[in-house]
Design a protein around this nucleic acid. Sequence first.
DNA 1: GTCTATACTAAGATAGAC
DNA 2: GTCTATCTTAGTATAGAC
Lengths: 195, 195
Amino acid sequence: MARTAGSDAATTGPRIRAAAQRLFARHGYAAVSMRQIAAEVGVQAGALYNYTPDKQSLLFEMMRAHLEELLASWEAEDEGADPRAALRAFCHFHIRFHLARPEAVFIAYMELRNLEPGNFEVIEGLRKRYETALEDILRAGKAEGVFTLVDTKLAALAVIAMLTGVTTWYREEGRLSRERVAEIYWDMVRRAVGA
Amino acid sequence: MARTAGSDAATTGPRIRAAAQRLFARHGYAAVSMRQIAAEVGVQAGALYNYTPDKQSLLFEMMRAHLEELLASWEAEDEGADPRAALRAFCHFHIRFHLARPEAVFIAYMELRNLEPGNFEVIEGLRKRYETALEDILRAGKAEGVFTLVDTKLAALAVIAMLTGVTTWYREEGRLSRERVAEIYWDMVRRAVGA
DNA sequence: GTCTATACTAAGATAGAC
DNA sequence: GTCTATCTTAGTATAGAC
């Protein structure tokens, strides 16, 4: 018998990507073997190569999909309203989006150095576009006089670092809901930028 | 000839630790081999085992040394002054200390998952002690009414995430000095906590 | 599309000579 | 204290059968 009972080509691809994401997030890209991924899916290692040319592509495509979804989601949500409302929306969006996919977020931040140079450039470009979206809000608010900012660029970096930090400690069973955490962080961001 | 010209037991140990730190920071613990470390030092792989029982100990001791130095340095610097002065000192200290040792910082944040369980507990305990140091300052300031904080714990986590973020983008050749960056961040932190 | 089998490379760690 | 040589295990990726 050449096929395992229940195997199904239509679902194997997604299952491989899901298993790779789970394992990369938990143990790190370099520490995970193709054999481990295959075992999680329930196939032999060789079968993975029907779905990906190599291990590197598995990482790269996963990171690209994540960042493209991040950008598209924010662009869909951004109403270009006044800077204060836009910044509040950004804070809530960023925390909500990141807490909803902890594995993809973790990988996007931790595995940059395991990307081959060409792939790194692509991912870095996407990340910068997101940074710029926040910077644009801050710059507009500064220009309108509703934010008090010493340095717009640094403020954007500081806000993103602060908000992303939530993913390192937030637990579903904890004392605060996601919504409550977002409100508390928005309050700190609001004051940090003088709004 | 069993010895390479210039080999010297008194310096090999430190050189191994330095090479391991440089390589772990650049490529990640899992991606670095004992042979690579040995090559950097200029010895054969087997010789490393005169200085470390295994690869894991190399990582663990490096992280422990880093965090113990972080704690000791802050404890030496903390004057227990009024909360506002203490928070300002903390911001400057944190940025100065972290920017001075980017490799150790990077490893301390990225390689937690590559620690064996027992080692992880030790490192996590040290990290928590540092977090608590900041929390104590914030709590004191809140009690005295000089800080306005919705949630002391979250504020501590937010401040550390924000300050540590500097290490991901700061470049020596950039437009701002370390001192200037620390001042700008302190200004944002100060406002975020309502001081 | 998946299997088994395997080519090839490299990993961590140890033994014994010098 | 370091070397060379080696044990054992495991990695990525491919070939050919079914």
